[in-house]
Amino acid sequence: MKETWQVIFSGVGGQGLMLAGKLLGDAATGYEGKYAVMTSAYGVESRGTFAKSDCLISSSEIDYPEVLKPDVVIALAAVAYKKYAPLLAKGTVLLYDDSIEPLPSYAEQICLPLAKIAKEAGNPLGINLVSLGVLVQQTGIVQELSVINAIKDEFAGREKQIMLNLQSFQAGIRAKQI
């Protein structure tokens, strides 16, 4: 098992990139006894410009809190994809939405209809949770159940939100089998 995973959720503000990172970190620390750190970067605008969250999940203590060598970069908007595709090296997986025009990259690219899957799962805003589902399914970075628990904690007392987010997450888990 890999000791430390480095993941970037990127896109534009408002897509729930921080939430995706938070749920992943909570699943790891709260339910699997692992170490997790999440840092973020965004502009002064409340939504619509480049934003990202850096997540590190490890079986040992994490010193540096930003991603230096990503294992996976998830790009949910063109601005983020264009930023990362030319920068990434071999050994990184770049997962992006099929609405984005592809570019050459040294990364291993996976293109999925993430927005479409989110819409079909009943929550067009759930693209972040769909991508988290794909990440968990593809990497085993944390257990599916840990994320389900983290979602239930995050939206405690808000049944509709729990249901919508679980649907999005589980649609992501199934995505590669579609």
Partner: peptide, 9 residues
């Protein structure tokens, strides 16, 4: 900002 906005267990 790093420490204030950083999430950690």
């Amino acid at each position: 900002e790093i420490i204030g906005h950083m999430r950690e267990g």
